[in-house]
């Protein structure tokens, strides 16, 4: 469903996207889909014995796919998830359930569409944050056309916004 810029307020929280619990089979499926054979995602003796990890790790590459999906779906068919930034700060282990969350921090009007600035993250079932980040999503104005596709970055008055 189309989401318009006017429908969004600073402070709004996005509906959480839940992924998992993520089993070793989920991790193997992702490793196979990307032909990435890093053992810390499927070889428990290697992960715990050689690399001294507490268990098999959920791939950071998989977590960022979830972040991208979360923002893409929220942007809706006429919006565009333009910028996504995140830091891998903590591990998530096989068996954990991940919750993708985001909150609107700031709204900014460009000429042809609006920009929604968000803070976001990935927390596990115990509420521990692992992947804090931020994003900028372009949304159409209520009476305006869809955000251009392919996306063309707006010319903004503030240099701060351009670098956000």
């Amino acid at each position: 469903m189309r989401r318009n810029f006017e429908d969004v307020l600073a402070g709004d929280e996005l509906t959480v996207l839940v992924k998992g619990p993520l089993t070793t089979a989920h991790l193997m499926r992702w490793s196979a889909a990307t032909e990435n054979w890093h053992k810390i995602h499927y070889d428990l003796p290697f992960a715990t014995g050689h690399d001294k990890l507490p268990g098999l790790l959920i791939n950071g590459s998989l977590k960022q796919q979830f972040v991208a999906q979360f923002l893409k779906d929220w942007a809706g068919p006429d919006g565009w998830a333009w910028k996504i930034a995140f830091q891998f700060r903590a591990m998530n282990l096989a068996g954990e359930r991940l919750e993708l969350w985001a909150r609107v921090t700031r709204l900014e009007r460009a000429e042809a569409f609006g920009l929604v600035h968000l803070e976001l993250g990935v927390r596990n079932g115990e509420g521990k944050e692992s992947t804090p980040g931020s994003a900028v999503v372009a949304l159409p104005y209520r009476d305006g056309p869809a955000v251009p596709y392919p996306f063309v970055p707006p010319v903004l008055p503030s240099a701060e916004a351009a670098g956000a």
Partner: peptide, 12 residues
């Protein structure tokens, strides 16, 4: 080598 994170800009 550890992956610290990324900034991504999407166009199409």
């Amino acid at each position: 080598l550890l992956n610290g994170g990324a900034e991504i800009e999407l166009f199409r």
